[in-house]
Amino acid sequence: MEFKTLLFYVFSVVMLFAGLRVITARNPVHAVLYLVLAFFNASGIWFLLQAEFLAIALLVVYVGAVMVLFLFVVMMLDINIETLRKGFWSYLPFGAAIGLLMVVEMALVLVGRYFSLAALPEPEVVAGYSNTKELGRALFTDYVYPFELASVILLVGIIAAVLLTNRKRKDSKAMNPSDQLVVKRNDRLRIVKMESFQEPVAEPSADEGKGA
């Protein structure tokens, strides 16, 4: 057996296990961490297919950023596991039907005559071939309009999300940094010249030294 094949089985087994645990783990934080593990192994399989750009992009985007924020949110939630489990049996048929549909669709693609991997030509790997460069070239020449369109949609999504959640609070004590920066010394501080020592004028009274 080739070493690569062994690696493939290791990645696949761990990924399947992690995927299973994502839906069976009792604690949502554990489920998210298993999902991270599943992403890692998926990325490993892509590495084996020599799709290093996609593999690393999966790591940077999903593991490095999206899942961190996901974890952030899940940790803050106060989830009662008992109430979550209540509807399990009533949802099961519906979920199973969707799962079955997905399996059938994937089987059609993978086993069918026209879409199967065997029908695809073997990719040509020449010396100095860079996955990243090829992908960049394709995205910014042949597919530049769809690519730009997708990024504009994302931008609209970002702005919409910010606008929907950004309400001015009246009791907010947030300070404006530019106001803070333009402050001059004289606005905040007044220096008063005082003698450090004053000659005692009056005679010392009788109870001197007793007061604080």
Partner: peptide, 25 residues
């Protein structure tokens, strides 16, 4: 000597935050 070294560096360094988050939780 990875071809996409910069990307891999970004990816690996971004995992460090998991240690902190998991420890905190």
């Amino acid at each position: 000597n990875v071809d996409a070294g910069v990307l891999l560096a970004l990816a690996i360094t971004s995992f460090g935050v998991y240690g902190v988050i998991i420890a905190g939780w």
